[in-house]
Design a binder for these strands. Structure first.
Lengths: 200, 200
DNA sequence: CGGGTACTATATCAACCGGTACAAAAACAC
DNA sequence: GTGTTTTTGTACCGGTTGATATAGTACCCG
């Protein structure tokens, strides 16, 4: 019963993703969004709730479609492999010519205009914390398997990897090329302890 | 001749710095600024021009007062010393309890709301590029002095150091502590080539 | 063919944005 | 004192923000 929607909900969400990705949460106005999505304001509110909820749906889609390499990287046989896949995969997403440069999450979490945007910012920070925690656990496993010296703190290494990634995101948003970011990732990997464990 | 100003221009600029630092250029409204500076809108425009010019003056002051460690780091005897001072000094600024967390430049350059803010964003990117160039030249000098292997590209290393710094800035804005960032810096330094040059 | 239901479009809301016109008030030169 | 210059406070400008009320339109069921 009822009238059919005249637009594709997923397609419109994809268009919204492009806008949020380029402009950030605060920088994307409803006018930007509705024009890119090809729908009117009331349609947006009826379908997605409000700007904040639309962003959350967009963010979910972003993680599923563009950050899926993270889960895959966690299954690499070695810690070095995991970190390498993480940084290289991230570099590729950040400089994908099919999408705006940089990271949707980073672009929307740095400037803190205050008000409602602060909620979004905190949520993005929490999601990043979760990713760092996941990486930490992976490195703890690597340590328990003798891959890391016992005096290395996995939390420190997870934080370091995240920092390099966030820095690459900022540089990508500023125009860094894919090749440049790959070189950053390559150098970042050199910080890892020498191949030899205490002995395995 | 004429009437005296009832406020201290430098003091008000310092107050504006706090606001821009916390909120970013776009996130800081004229209401936020005038309230923090203790002056009215017309006084702000008569004294500093407009919001954009006020930001530039604020940015100059920021670099002079809080980024002065950069010039000093460049004079360290070794490349390792320069990079170490750079990252540690930056970590300290990013987490100075007397000021908002993070970096004024990064906080104002990531989100791209479009319009007038884009000018500021490009200018901040250009200033960062300049810093990276300066570091690159310092590393080139180190390479010419035999401190770096010949097959290492100073541009790559400068980009890597900048990336780590930018990442630390994002993490600081998200609540990272000074100690955590110092550990990031320490690990980042391990990526440097072994102490021994080709031989000096 | 209605009736009911969902979607769409126009037009609008109050609040806020950066930026100013205007006139009152204060300090100088004379 | 008087005239001039500069600063200050109030009140306001057009434009944009996120979010809706209202009315019209298309579709399904019976």
């Amino acid at each position: 019963m009822g009238r059919h929607k005249e637009f594709d909900v997923d397609e419109a969400l994809c268009a919204a993703l492009q806008v949020f990705w380029r402009r950030g949460f605060e920088g994307a106005s409803l006018t930007d969004l509705t024009e890119a999505m090809g729908i009117t304001r009331p349609s947006l509110y009826a379908t997605y709730g409000n700007k904040e909820e639309l962003f959350r749906k967009t963010l979910d889609r972003y993680e599923q479609m563009h950050l899926c390499f993270v889960a895959q990287a966690m299954e690499a046989p070695t810690a070095r492999g995991t970190i390498g896949e993480l940084l290289r995969g991230y570099a590729d997403v950040l400089t994908d010519p099919m999408h705006p440069p940089g990271c949707l999450g980073v672009n929307s979490s740095v400037c803190t205009g205050g008000g409602e945007a602060e909620t979004i910012r905190q949520e993005l920070i929490a999601r990043r914390s979760l990713n760092e925690e996941t990486l930490k656990r992976r490195l703890e496993r690597a340590a328990s398997e003798g891959e890391f010296p016992a005096d290395e703190d996995p939390a420190d290494w997870a934080r370091y990897v995240m920092s390099v990634g966030l820095g690459m995101a900022v540089k990508a948003a500023a125009g860094a090329t894919r090749c440049e970011l790959h070189r950053v990732a390559e150098i970042a990997l050199r910080a890892l302890p020498a191949r030899e464990p205490a002995l395995a």
